[in-house]
Amino acid sequence: MTLLAVERIKLFSTRAPVWCVATALALTIGATAGLVWLNARHSDGVSPESTQTLYILGLAVTMVMATLSVTTEYRFGTIKATFQAVPSRTRALLAKATVLALVAGFVGEISSFGSWGVARLITGSPHTDIATADEWREIAGMGLVYAVAAVLAVAVGALLRQSAAAVAILLLFPLLVEQLVEIVPGVGERLHDWMPFVAASQFAGTVDPTLPYGPWGGLAYFAAVAAVLLVAALVVVEKRDA
C-alpha cells in the first residue's frame, strides 16, 4: 500500500495529470455530445453503443498521461530518487502501473457513462437505455480498456524513457499504424486483425464478426500485449543503470 500511496502523491502533486484527466473527459464527452446532437436531427434515435465510438480520444490522452508519469521521472531525474527510496525497481514500476491503471479505469468509466448520459440528455430518447449485456459491456467495460491501455503506456514509457518518442508511438500506433498495416500486401489483413488496439475496440465497440476472437477474447489479447510489454520493461529497468 505504501508504494501505491507514493505513486499517488507523485502523480497528483504536479498539474499535468490533472489536466490530462480533465482533457480526456472533456474531449470524449464533448465530442460525443456534438456528434449526438448532429445525428439527432437526422435519425430518430441513438443506441447506447453509438455513444461510445469516440472513446479513442480520451484513451489517447490517458495513455499520454500514463507514459509521461514515467518519462518525466527520467527527464527530471526523479527516477533516481524513486529508486533510492524503493530498492526493488520492479515493485516501484508495478506500483506506478497499478496507480495509473486505477486512475485510467476511473477516467474510462466516467468518460463512457458521461458520454452515454450526455447523449441521453440531448435526445431524451428511450433508445439510449442500456438493455443488453453487450451494451453493458461496451459502457461499463470501458474502464478495463483504459486501465490496460495505461499499463501499456507505462511500459512503453519505461522502455523508451523519452517523452516525445513514447507519446509519438502511443498516438501514432492506434490512430495511424494499425490502419496502414492493412495495406501490406498479402498478410495485411491478418496482421490488422491482431493489432492490439483493434482487439481493444472489439471489446469496447461493436463486435466485428470477421475477427478471429470475440469481445472478451479481444480484451484478453489486448491485456496480454500490455503484459508482455510490461514484463519487457521490468526486465530492462532492472538491468539498466538508472
Binding site: T2, I9, K10, T14, G77, K80, A81, A85, V86
Partner: peptide, 25 residues
C-alpha cells in the same frame, strides 16, 4: 543521498517532493 540537486520535478512543490519520499520511507 544527495547526488544532484536538480533531480526534482520542477512543477512539484518542495513539500510534495518530500511528502512522497516520506511516504516511501
Amino acid at each position: 543521498g544527495l547526488l544532484d540537486a536538480t533531480w526534482v520535478h520542477p512543477h512539484r512543490t518542495a513539500r510534495d517532493h518530500l511528502r512522497w519520499l516520506a511516504r516511501a520511507a
